[in-house]
Design a protein around this nucleic acid. Sequence first.
DNA 1: TGAATACTTGACATAAACAGTAGGCTATTT
DNA 2: AAATAGCCTACTGTTTATGTCAAGTATTCA
Lengths: 156, 156
Amino acid sequence: MLRLSTKGQYGVRAMFEIARGYPDRPLTIKEIAERQDVSVAYLEQILGKLRRAGLIRSIRGPGGGYLLAREPREIPIAEVLGVLEGPVAITSCVDPREGCVRVEHCVTHLLWKELGAQIEGFLNTITLGNLLAGDVGSLQQVRTALEKTSKDRNSR
Amino acid sequence: MLRLSTKGQYGVRAMFEIARGYPDRPLTIKEIAERQDVSVAYLEQILGKLRRAGLIRSIRGPGGGYLLAREPREIPIAEVLGVLEGPVAITSCVDPREGCVRVEHCVTHLLWKELGAQIEGFLNTITLGNLLAGDVGSLQQVRTALEKTSKDRNSR
DNA sequence: TGAATACTTGACATAAACAGTAGGCTATTT
DNA sequence: AAATAGCCTACTGTTTATGTCAAGTATTCA
């Protein structure tokens, strides 16, 4: 359940690849495609969205390619995914683009809302900088802290 | 992004409805369907899965219906969703039923794995009992604790 | 200026997943 | 026996996901 589309996955991987070159040199689509094993045509769509959203810049012509528009540590994963897949919306009930017709009857409304907030919160704490530094391992500490807190809550 | 299928949503709502009657009386599919505004035929599929997984019991014949197999507080939402939609698997890369072909090259592998663990951890802390008691509001505290911890981590 | 290189856009194709329906069957109670 | 209620499986229409393709536009270098 709760699978991410390939657009989101490839997008993050492409951003990572671009970030690796940052700020030294622009990376061509072809390079990114080869390194991440994705078709050039498909990547074009993805990078186009990211560029229009202002996350990356492009330079045309020979020697051109893509560059990050900001520093890696200023680009949270949540933003990349948000551009490519829209906001987190576990159910249509909590989708900002739709809306709940039965909020008051909907017992689960709050549950989905909180789950969404949880996910967004998490993805906002991780940046491309973290990915580059390879310090995602320390995330486990975050989870551990969460579980402890929940346990406290339930034992009250 | 990350939308839950209707099966999962309806399933949780159905479980909630059954839990409301617990342990007094069995609820018929028809009653659940009416109260949660879902078709009887569709609900049958969902309740069938939940029954085979041992989350609910059924009683046939007149006066029959569905009952919880355990106490509401012993039934985490994660389990309900797991039965109906399989395990959390943000990408095929971290799907226990598939597997990652390129773990060592896959920078994002750990990220998706942690996100999945985060979600499962959260859904495991919420039970039908919590839903019944309407104390989902206190979830916010959990999130706040999470964010604080993350902040600490990043400022180190 | 012309060739090479690279990005841009929109239409289209295929396949998988989702959401729900339909119909017949079995068990239990009265 | 009749009524009630759950059980099971196959089928189907729709939507979404995942790409591909083709033609066009912009930039740079020689």
